[in-house]
Structure formats: C-alpha cells, structure tokens
Amino acid sequence: MTVPIRPRATGRVTLSDVAHLAGVSPITVSRALRGERAVAPELVAKVQAAAHKLGYVPNPAARALASGQSSHVAVLIPMLSNALFVDVLETLQQTLRQAGYQALIGITHYDASEEESLLREQLLHRPAGLIVTGLERSDATRGLIAQSGVPCVHLMTAEAPEGAYCVGFSQRDAGHDLTQHLLDQGHRRIAFAAAQLDPRALQRLEGWRQALQAAGRYDATLEWLNPAPSSLSLGARMFEQIMGQQPPVDAIFFCNDDLAQGALLAALRLGISVPQRVAIAGFNDLTGSDQMLPPLTTVRTPRAEIGQAAGQMLVALMQGETVASPCVNLGYTLQLRDSA
C-alpha cells in the first residue's frame, strides 16, 4: 500500500517530502534542483518529477541560511512610476536571471529614511549583491552597505569615491551640453524648470548654471524649482507660470521629458508657437517625446545599457572576479528635434 505524502502542519511541501516521493535522500534533492553535475541524469529526472507532482517551491531564504550563499540581489530604486527606472530594471533583471540571480526590488520614494529601512530588511535575507541608485544617502545607510561586505553597484552616476562601483553618466555634463545647445541656437533667457528635486535633477541644474555663468547669462530668477512629483500636468502649469515672467524667457529646459511634454501640450492649447516664441527642451528621451508637436529636443540617456552593464558588473563582483573599471561612463546623446 502506498503511504500518502502529508506535508507538515504549515501545509508547505518540504525538501524531505520530495525526497520521500523520489526515493532519494534530501541532499540529493537539493543537489539535483541546484543543477549540480554530480547527480546522475536519471535521479535529476526523478527529483524533478516528484517536485512537480507535489508543487514544491524551494525556499531561497532557507537555502541561503544553510549554505551561507544567496541567489537574490537587493535592488533599491526611487520610483516605478518613472519610465526611466522601468527601462533600467528590465535589462538589469534579465542580466541577473541569466546568471542565476533574482532581483528583490525595493522602492525608496526618494526618501533617505525609507531607503535605510528597506536596506535593513533586505540585509536580513543575506543578499548576494546590492544595486542602489546614485550616491546621496544617509550616513547610516552608507555604514550598512560598508559593513555588510556585500558587493554593491551604484546606478545613474559615473562618479564614485574610491572603492565604490558605479555605472551611469554625468548628469551635470548632460545638463551643461543641452544648455549650451540652446545658447548656440541664439537663446539668451533660458529658464530651468525642475520637479521632484532629486539629486540627479539638481546635478542637471548645476550643469545649466555652469553653462549660463560661462556665457554671462545666469539669472537666479530663471530657476523654477518645484518639489512635487514630475508629471505632464505639472509641466503644463509650470509652463504657464514661466511664460508670465518678465522680462520674457525665450527657452525652457525642463529637467524631465514628462514636464516638457506637458509644456508642449499647454503651448498648443494656448496658441504659443514653439520654438519661434519659446524653445522647449527636456531630458531622458522618454516614450512619446519624438511624437510631440513639435517633436521634443531632449537628452537620450542610456537606461537599458545602464541596467545591463550594472548587472554584468555586479555578477562579476559576486563571483569574485576583477572588473576592468570600477566606474563605467556610458555617456548620453543630444536628441535635437524641432522644439528647440
């Protein structure tokens, strides 16, 4: 008579349940499911069939505790509502999965205390690696990263202190170069409009300032900074406010494309000619920017490339390999279209 398999009181199927059904030891089940070559193919097939029949799902936390190793990577990003980070995550996750790692994503909402809390929670699961966004964070969070001993790669920046690893580009240089393009087009009163006011937006602001200061055109009243979340509707409102400024502006550099897209829609509604009356430029080359009327001049940032390169760098670090360069600068491209 066949004795039915009865999972323990929690209702969760265990490694021992799979071993019992397959007629092998628990250690053989563990090795077979990890894909170790030392296990005979016929035993692997028996184990996989038993696991499938019972609906067994390995517990990565238990495996990490038992082996001292983990297959997951903690990834902390500011927002998922921003297409910028969605593009980065897609290629990052693909790269990690191909190497046998899983991304455990945490959203910080640009809040230093929330980032610290999320990191403490993630470290309890003994991640194999860490991905964080930028360099600006609390001293406590920096201490946690340093003391963890876990390899860490910083996204969206190409400048990091000695001993740190990063993949990105210079936000400051990109802001400078887009502003310089507007100056080269003959614009003289160039406003800078920013929302969210995260560290990367403020670095673009620094680049804008540097370009205008070098040209003798800097005016602090041209800075329009709003801490609210970036959106099309906010861009439209900011555009209307800026167009009422005296003396009038002849160009506006929006720190993100959604703001600039909202401004272009407002200009259409108000009958304001772009770029004849005012030039409009954005940042990040988000979806739809090339379809606006007129198409939006912006900065293309290498989001997919950043995710892939950061994943490759972290995999190398987790596997004890030496990376060619601790900081990878993937650059950016000015997408010059009809709006500026």
Rank of each mutant, 00 (worst) to 15 (best):
K46T: 10
I107Q: 09
Q69N: 09
A112T: 14
Y101D: 03
L92F: 04
Y56H: 10
K53M: 11
E116S: 07
R37L: 06
E116C: 04
Y110K: 05
E121W: 00
S117P: 00
V24E: 07
S71M: 05
S113Y: 09
E36K: 13
A49E: 15
T95E: 15
H109F: 00
Q122E: 12
A32K: 10
H52R: 14
L84H: 15
I105A: 08
I27Q: 14
R31H: 07
Q93F: 00
S117K: 15
A62V: 02
A61N: 09
Q69W: 10
V73C: 09
Y101V: 00
T91R: 12
L65P: 05
R37S: 12
E115M: 08
S71K: 03
V29R: 04
S117D: 14
P41G: 01
A99K: 11
Y110N: 13
R97L: 10
H72R: 03
A103D: 10
T108A: 01
D87H: 13
H52W: 02
S30Y: 09
L96E: 12
I105V: 15
I27C: 02
A49G: 10
A64I: 03
Y110L: 08
G106V: 01
N59Y: 00
Y56V: 02
D87C: 02
V75Y: 11
T28D: 02
K53S: 14
L123F: 04
I27W: 00
A99V: 00
S25D: 13
A99G: 08
K46R: 15
V86N: 07
T91I: 03
G68R: 12
Q69H: 12
G100R: 06
R97G: 03
S25K: 08
L123T: 10
Y56E: 05
Y110Q: 11
A83L: 07
L54C: 10
L130Y: 00
V73N: 11
A64H: 10
L84I: 15
L123W: 06
R97W: 06
A99C: 11
Q102P: 00
G106K: 02
A112H: 14
H52Q: 11
S67P: 02
A64W: 05
A61Q: 11
T95K: 11
Q122K: 04
A51I: 04
Q102H: 09
S113H: 11
A40V: 09
A61D: 01
A62G: 13
T108G: 01
A45S: 12
S113N: 14
D111F: 03
A62I: 00
P41L: 05
L124M: 12
P127V: 01
R120G: 01
T95N: 10
L80H: 09
H52S: 12
L65N: 07
H109E: 14
A128G: 15
S81T: 15
G35T: 04
L130S: 04
A62W: 03
L89W: 07
A64F: 07
V88P: 06
H109T: 04
M79Q: 15
T28M: 03
K53D: 14
L43M: 14
L76G: 12
T108Q: 05
G129V: 08
L124I: 13
H109Y: 03
T108L: 03
N82I: 10
P26M: 04
E114A: 13
